[in-house]
């Protein structure tokens, strides 16, 4: 292959990747933020996932759903970081009284705050279903569990989320 052809291929790859990046970065960040509740961490996670996609673009770019690969990497990173934070949260649970007042602010903050009270697996299922628009079967495949487990997660997740949201509204913070 001559130099001109190589350069053309590289330019095409960059254009393809940039298109995906610009179209999906914000959506993916919205998903991860709902899970982590941390805007700066979310930004780093999504950027890192896209970076890894670009480093393997010769392979990832040929996938039918490259954004699925990026989403999976971003979630792996998020789960890994999240496990690290558990220790501090566990300490908080044991050493601090519960917050006396509900969070205030825009709806998005209230939803994120309520989601953070939902157990990790249930929260992940909710976000994948309602923000990533994955079906029960897709979530089951992505998380390597049976569809019945996902249905159970979603049902329990909805119930838990509704209860926590209700707590906030009744706290008069909306």
């Amino acid at each position: 292959m001559d130099i001109a052809s190589t350069r053309k291929m590289a330019a095409t790859a960059e254009a393809d990747f940039s298109g995906l990046y610009q179209a999906r970065f914000s959506d993916l960040a919205a998903q991860l933020y709902a899970f982590t509740g941390d805007p700066s961490e979310t930004h780093d996670l999504v950027q890192e996932a896209f970076l890894r996609a670009w480093q393997r673009w010769h392979t990832v770019g040929r996938y039918e759903d490259p954004v699925g690969w990026v989403r999976r990497v971003a979630w792996n990173l998020a789960m890994s970081r999240h496990r690290r934070l558990r220790l501090i949260r566990h300490w908080a649970d044991h050493s601090q009284p519960a917050a006396a007042t509900a969070p205030t602010g825009p709806d998005r903050v209230v939803l994120v705050a309520a989601l953070r009270k939902v157990p990790e697996q249930l929260r992940r299922a909710l976000v994948l279903h309602y923000l990533a628009d994955l079906s029960v079967a897709d979530i089951a495949a992505e998380t390597a569990v049976a569809e019945g487990t996902v249905k159970s997660w979603l049902h329990r997740g909805r119930t838990e989320l509704a209860r926590h949201l209700s707590d906030y509204w009744e706290g008069g913070s909306r």
């Binding site: 960059e14 990747f17 940039s18 990046y21 610009q22 970065f25 914000s26 959506d27 960040a29 919205a30 933020y33 709902a34 805007p39 979310t42 930004h43 999504v46 950027q47 896209f50 970076l51 670009w54 825009p106 709806d107 998005r108 939803l111 994120v112 909710l126 309602y130 923000l131 909805r158 119930t159 989320l161 509704a162 949201l165």
Partner: peptide, 28 residues
Amino acid sequence: LDAGTAAEFADYRRAVREMFPQPPSAAI
């Protein structure tokens, strides 16, 4: 419950995307 949850997430999705403008792909 499903519809209510979907509505909450739809509101969130509309509101939160603006929080995360992507950096230029050149940075990647």
